Amino acid sequence: MSSTDKKKAQTYVEQLKQKASEQENYGAEIKYEQAHMLVCDCPECGAGRALVDGLTICAYCGFKFMTVKLSNGIHIKKTNNS
């Protein structure tokens, strides 16, 4: 391969790189965030637990993270069926 062929190949690659860097993003703008983990340790036994919506009881020791009490809502009414 001669030196002129190498120059053509390099300029073609450079053109591709330039086109790729100038290309517009069709979706939403990319947001760069610091990586993080949502972790909650059980205060009773110290077991590491991933935070999940609706987590109320520790699976290891049974500690209650929160007590949920139902009250009258917009669409659902509390009834006393004792």
Score class of each variant (00 low, 15 high):
residue 13 V to N: 07
residue 14 E to N: 12
residue 15 Q to K: 09
residue 15 Q to L: 05
residue 15 Q to R: 13
residue 16 L to C: 14
residue 17 K to Y: 07
residue 17 K to F: 05
residue 18 Q to L: 11
residue 19 K to R: 15
residue 20 A to D: 05
residue 20 A to V: 13
residue 20 A to F: 03
residue 20 A to N: 13
residue 21 S to W: 00
residue 24 E to T: 12
residue 24 E to W: 04
residue 24 E to F: 07
residue 24 E to K: 15
residue 24 E to Y: 10
residue 24 E to P: 11
residue 25 N to S: 13
residue 25 N to D: 15
residue 25 N to A: 11
residue 26 Y to P: 04
residue 27 G to I: 02
residue 27 G to A: 08
residue 27 G to H: 09
residue 27 G to K: 07
residue 28 A to P: 01
residue 30 I to C: 05
residue 30 I to D: 08
residue 31 K to G: 01
residue 31 K to R: 11
residue 32 Y to F: 10
residue 33 E to A: 04
residue 33 E to P: 01
residue 34 Q to L: 10
residue 35 A to G: 04
residue 36 H to K: 10
residue 36 H to R: 07
residue 36 H to D: 07
residue 37 M to Q: 13
residue 37 M to G: 05
residue 38 L to V: 03
residue 39 V to Y: 03
residue 40 C to W: 01
residue 41 D to H: 10
residue 44 E to Y: 03
residue 45 C to N: 01
residue 45 C to Q: 00
residue 46 G to N: 09
residue 47 A to K: 06
residue 47 A to D: 00
residue 47 A to L: 06
residue 47 A to E: 05
residue 48 G to P: 03
residue 49 R to C: 09
residue 49 R to H: 02
residue 49 R to T: 05
residue 49 R to P: 00
residue 50 A to R: 11
residue 51 L to M: 14
residue 51 L to F: 14
residue 52 V to D: 05
residue 52 V to Q: 02
residue 53 D to V: 08
residue 53 D to C: 00
